[in-house]
């Protein structure tokens, strides 16, 4: 009995951790390319969920068409976001940029409410299977979808950054802007592509997590902050750290909420993060010197 609960918690934790990982990754690649922390990343999770519900329910489009369409839309949002909230402030200190991205997050929240209404909406699930039973353990199939899709996406993005010329040019831009310029790499374009890429990661997270909860304007805010926490716990600035830290956070949060207190569920992420920052500021993995050298 106890065992089955623990296994169920593990799956739910891995699924939430996967979502946090996608968000964290988006935050980290923007940070590395542009030295900016995007406090609106959570809203880039919320928005695609709303668009998907609209296309699926109101427009009645089939799911196969909706998912790519949403991702294309969000790519465009990412592009505009970079031009509005980052580009004009690129030479200023971090404070105006933080406030500006928080301003965008308030804008997106209220924009979504303005366009799609204030009522919570339900996003249809991609499968009709209600529950999966694996060896006596009942598991929500959406968890499996989340975990598998995230893993595939992470493999794909690893391939993109390590094997393609564009990926390597984006890495070069993140590591040393002046040197990248000297090589002839158009860094402004690289940064714009990074924002688009990051927004797409967030929108996949939104499409995956949408069916689990109600789609509301508040659904992304806390998730965005937890993705940030996950990235810090893993070692801020490191891609691997962001993924591992987020998965770790997702799993431990589920267990703590179950065994300790569900009321303080949202506090655990911050408490763990503050402890990590104070006692091991380089994160669990330790930021490799190289990453920001």
């Amino acid at each position: 009995m106890d065992m089955t609960i623990n296994v169920q918690l593990l799956f739910s934790g891995l699924a939430m951790g996967s979502i946090y990982a996608l968000i964290a990754l988006g935050i980290v690649i923007i940070y590395r390319a542009a030295d900016v922390v995007n406090f609106a990343q959570g809203e880039l999770v919320m928005l695609p969920a709303f668009i998907a519900v609209f296309l699926l329910d109101t427009m009645g489009l089939p799911a196969v068409a909706v998912y790519p369409l949403v991702i294309i839309c969000m790519g465009l949002v990412g592009f505009i976001f970079e031009k509005v909230a980052y580009y004009p402030l690129r030479n200023r200190s971090f404070l105006p940029v933080i406030i500006s991205t928080i301003g965008v997050s308030i804008f997106l929240k209220n924009g979504a409410q303005y366009v799609f209404g204030a009522l919570p909406q339900v996003m249809p699930r991609p499968t009709d299977v209600e529950v999966l039973v694996l060896g006596g353990v009942i598991i929500d199939p959406q968890y499996i979808i989340i975990i598998v899709s995230t893993s595939l996406l992470l493999v794909a993005q690893h391939f993109f950054f390590e094997r393609t010329m564009l990926g390597k040019m984006m890495q070069a831009t993140a590591q040393d802007k002046d040197a990248a310029r000297l090589m002839g790499i158009p860094i402004a374009r690289m940064i714009a592509i990074t924002f688009i890429f990051s927004t797409i990661l967030a929108s996949v997270a939104g499409l995956l997590v949408g069916p689990l909860f109600y789609v509301t304007k508040e659904m992304g805010g806390m998730a965005g902050l937890k993705g940030f926490c996950g990235a810090i716990i893993g070692g801020f600035g490191s891609v691997t750290g962001a993924i591992l830290g987020s998965v770790f956070l997702g799993v431990i949060e589920v267990y703590l909420a179950f065994y300790v207190s569900s009321a303080y569920r949202d506090a655990f992420a911050f408490i763990i993060m503050i402890l990590v920052l104070l006692f091991r500021p380089q994160g669990i993995l330790g930021e490799r010197i190289a990453q920001k050298a």
Partner: peptide, 14 residues
């Protein structure tokens, strides 16, 4: 910078 910002956000939520 950012670390302090997110730490204070966490404090506020707690």
């Amino acid at each position: 910078g950012h670390y302090l910002a997110v730490t204070t956000i966490g404090f506020g939520f707690i």
